[in-house]
Amino acid sequence: MKWIDPHIHCSARTTDDYVKMAEQGIVAVIEPAFWLGQPRTNVGSFIDYYSSLIGWERFRASQYGIKHYCTIGLNSKEANNEALAEEVMEILPRFLPKEGVVAVGEIGYDDQTKLEDKYYRAQLELAKEYDMLVMVHTPHRDKKKGTIKSMEVALEHGLDPNKVIIDHNNEETIQDTLDRGFWAAFTIYPKTKMGNERMVEVVKKFGSDRIIVDSSADWGYSDPLAVPKTANLMLKMGIAEEDVVKTCYSNAILAYGQSGQFNESDWEQKTDADPKELFEGNSVLRGQENNQTKTS
């Protein structure tokens, strides 16, 4: 079966992960711009990071037969460095209209400071100006209040909830998210946030409409196979295949497809990854067969 992981930080993952993801049926991924663990100290670091999301990482994923998309935004943690945040806001319009950029994101709150609020709002305005979707990162701490605030502020700025994906939901926030008409994404982490079994229960209770499963796998302890594993567990636990497909594949297309940059035809018609696309005399495959050639 085919799956989409609509939230994964591929830049922090190895090529082995790409191989396994492709083997497990992941055909497309969305990599939201986030923080790197190490705080950035100048705008050039942001420029290079965004460039790698639309360039190098997309190329790397393509070598494993996976279509790579991204979101571009100033993350909440680094919004707290005001001087730098101002400079980043200046360059965001240069990246938002690029090919394969499906949303402004991930933006929102971390500590829920005034500066986080300022740049969250400024980026909601940008999304409106560029007629783009928004991917919202909801805070880990003081989660329920922060999630509700994220949505209220988006509504206050006149965003259509159908064009906003609220990520990192849990059992305590989902009702509020669905009630307001937003998309509710769930991150499956091995230990924290949502676990696979909990996700099964969520779908049993809330159904599959507007619910999206992702891994948010990054440089920390996380699982790039969270989506296929959760999908398989759901199937095993008796959830209807239709609901599994919706939460782990087609809802992501419905939500992010609104950008015009995320179309099923992109990966349905894809040609085989070209193992001859080389760089510096070497392919990223370094003699390894790519997944496409291997399975075809």
Binding site: I47, Y50, S51, G55, R58, F59, F95, K98, E99, G100
Partner: peptide, 9 residues
């Protein structure tokens, strides 16, 4: 150039 994606470059 510095903010270009592959097709733009």
């Amino acid at each position: 150039f510095i903010t270009s994606d592959s097709k733009e470059s």
